Simulated scan of single mutants.
Amino acid sequence: MNIKSNFVKVTAAAALTLTGVATVSAVKPESTTAKVQAATTKVKINYVPGYGINIWDNYNGGHFTGQRAQHGTTWNVLDQKTDKKGRVWYQVGQNQWIMAQYTTPAGNTVTKNTTTQATATAAKPKKAKKSVQATGDVSAIVTLAEAQLGKNYVWGGTGANGFDCSGLTSYVYSKAAGVNIGRTTYDQVKQGTSVSMKNLQPGDLLFWGSASAPYHVGIYVGNNQYIHAATPGQGVIKQSLSGYFYPSAAKRILN
């Protein structure tokens, strides 16, 4: 075994681990035949205080790794790619990718790639547009909605310690996507684009009651489940869609 060679690879991999984040596991070393890649820039997570953004295993149709990059922490960027939807992603470790739109430049340049230059310089992250036509990563909506599970139902509550149904949806869209969808179910049902219940996607708003004047709203999160501020006795919970309490309408806010 080439002890010196392995030591160099492990040392280089250790240099690529994220800074300031103890809750997310460090980047694993490359295989013994892989080339050593060093970061070219640093970015800081700019999301919602107390929360983090999902880390994905790929920038195009990847899967959530179960790890999150916390707001305010600094990460080394190893590479930059643009997905099929035109969104910029940063590689921050082996099979670890985050969306550029939730970061700001950290201002510190580090050692350049020891084998090849990064494919492009870090792009300035895009801010969410303040309109219901804003585009964004629906994972941010789902992540923030899930973070509210277990909180109290409060009449007229808009967060962050308690919500009513429309207060929860308003809070999540405002904080996670920078989108103002209105305060009441009457306002929110007028936003976005109507979608079929057979074609739901995570982040869609679900409404119960009249399609023009609904009495309840929740957020669809995938796998036939939704999150809503249910009742004073239940608080914010996740439930599966069922025939006895089925939505009457659905709206897609993010394109």
Score class of each variant (00 low, 15 high):
residue 75 W to L: 13
residue 76 N to K: 15
residue 76 N to I: 05
residue 76 N to W: 13
residue 77 V to R: 04
residue 77 V to Y: 04
residue 78 L to F: 07
residue 79 D to N: 08
residue 80 Q to M: 12
residue 80 Q to S: 14
residue 80 Q to A: 14
residue 81 K to L: 03
residue 81 K to P: 07
residue 82 T to M: 00
residue 83 D to H: 10
residue 83 D to N: 13
residue 83 D to A: 07
residue 83 D to I: 13
residue 84 K to N: 14
residue 84 K to S: 15
residue 84 K to M: 11
residue 85 K to G: 14
residue 86 G to Y: 03
residue 86 G to S: 04
residue 87 R to M: 02
residue 88 V to L: 02
residue 90 Y to V: 02
residue 90 Y to I: 00
residue 91 Q to L: 07
residue 93 G to Q: 01
residue 93 G to W: 03
residue 94 Q to R: 14
residue 95 N to H: 10
residue 95 N to F: 10
residue 96 Q to N: 07
residue 97 W to R: 01
residue 100 A to R: 03
residue 102 Y to C: 01
residue 103 T to V: 02
residue 103 T to A: 05
residue 103 T to K: 02
residue 104 T to H: 06
residue 105 P to F: 01
residue 105 P to A: 03
residue 106 A to M: 03
residue 106 A to E: 07
residue 106 A to D: 15
residue 107 G to T: 01
residue 107 G to K: 05
residue 107 G to H: 01
residue 107 G to P: 08
residue 110 V to T: 08
residue 113 N to I: 05
residue 113 N to E: 15
residue 113 N to T: 15
residue 115 T to C: 01
residue 115 T to I: 03
residue 115 T to Y: 05
residue 115 T to P: 00
residue 116 T to Y: 14
residue 118 A to Q: 15
residue 120 A to N: 11
residue 120 A to E: 14
residue 121 T to L: 06
residue 121 T to P: 11
residue 121 T to Y: 09
residue 123 A to W: 04
residue 123 A to H: 09
residue 123 A to S: 12
residue 124 K to Y: 11
residue 124 K to L: 08
residue 126 K to M: 09
residue 126 K to I: 08
residue 126 K to S: 13
residue 127 K to H: 09
residue 127 K to E: 12
residue 128 A to K: 08
residue 128 A to D: 09
residue 130 K to N: 13
residue 130 K to Y: 13
residue 131 S to D: 14
residue 131 S to K: 06
residue 131 S to A: 11
residue 131 S to Y: 07
residue 132 V to R: 01
residue 133 Q to K: 14
residue 133 Q to T: 14
residue 134 A to L: 06
residue 134 A to V: 13
residue 134 A to C: 05
